[in-house]
């Protein structure tokens, strides 16, 4: 329940008021944020992996297990890949954000992202129940990930605007570049970790062979709808 309270407060923006941020405070517990990210991600993962279970193919149970773990993993790994460079360059630009504050801020943004994604879960579950088309499920999931990603990053952008209010803009520019890098890395990380949904015509595999990239694949899935 306290975890729900943390997420609720986070979504309300209680922890990220500009007056607090400018003093360099974010009173959020890193451990609790991480737990929220993992649990919310796993919730959506279950809905995502349901498609394989309902199609009853070989390894369906393993697929739902994999999806449940992969969704939170996707976000944590993306953070691991992009955080060090963000910190280094933002310190170089003499940003007022400390290491700990940067980490908390990013985890908070990811938690917002995950909360929105998890709230799409029931809708994904419903479409999974009634849809045979694998390309449709891909496009639907990409849409939900994109929308919640945009909301998460908007939250980050607004919070940062609060942090940098009246300060030199070097640190802010670093973040702007980072936002783009984070989005691209996140999309490609999703591609590396695939399959999430599980093609019903293919046997279970934890990871697919290395080939292609995210952007080409989404384009193809869209055209396969018709």
């Amino acid at each position: 329940m306290t975890l729900f309270r943390t997420v609720d407060d986070l979504l309300r923006g209680t922890h990220t008021r500009p007056e607090k941020l400018q003093k360099g405070e974010i009173d959020l517990d890193t451990g609790r944020l991480l737990t929220a990210v993992l649990l919310l991600g796993m919730t959506y993962g279950v809905f995502m992996g349901l498609y394989a279970v309902l199609r009853g193919g070989e390894g369906a149970i393993r697929q739902i297990g994999a999806a449940t773990l992969k969704v939170p993993l996707l976000f944590v790994l993306t953070l691991v890949v992009t955080f060090p460079s963000l910190y280094v360059f933002s310190a170089l630009a003499q940003s007022r954000l400390t290491f700990q504050m940067t980490l908390r801020l990013l985890l908070a943004a990811i938690a917002v992202n995950m909360a929105l994604l998890a709230s799409f879960g029931p809708v994904t579950g419903f479409f999974t129940l009634s849809t045979e088309s694998y390309p449709f499920m891909i496009v639907l999931n990409v849409a939900f990930f994109t929308i919640s990603g945009i909301v998460g990053l908007t939250f980050l952008r607004k919070t940062l605007a609060g942090v940098f209010e009246g300060a030199a803009t070097g640190g802010q520019n670093v973040f702007r570049v980072w936002l783009v890098i984070y989005s691209v890395v996140g999309a490609q990380m999703g591609w590396i970790l695939r399959p999430f949904i599980g093609d019903p015509h293919r046997p279970f595999e934890l990871f697919r062979e290395r080939q292609g990239n995210f952007f080409i694949a989404v384009w193809e899935a869209f055209w396969n709808l018709f």
């Binding site: 917002v112 909360a115 929105l116 998890a118 879960g121 939250f155």
Partner: peptide
């Protein structure tokens, strides 16, 4: 659930 999250955000 989504309506709740959207409102909170």
């Amino acid at each position: 659930p989504n309506f709740y999250t959207v409102n909170a955000v």
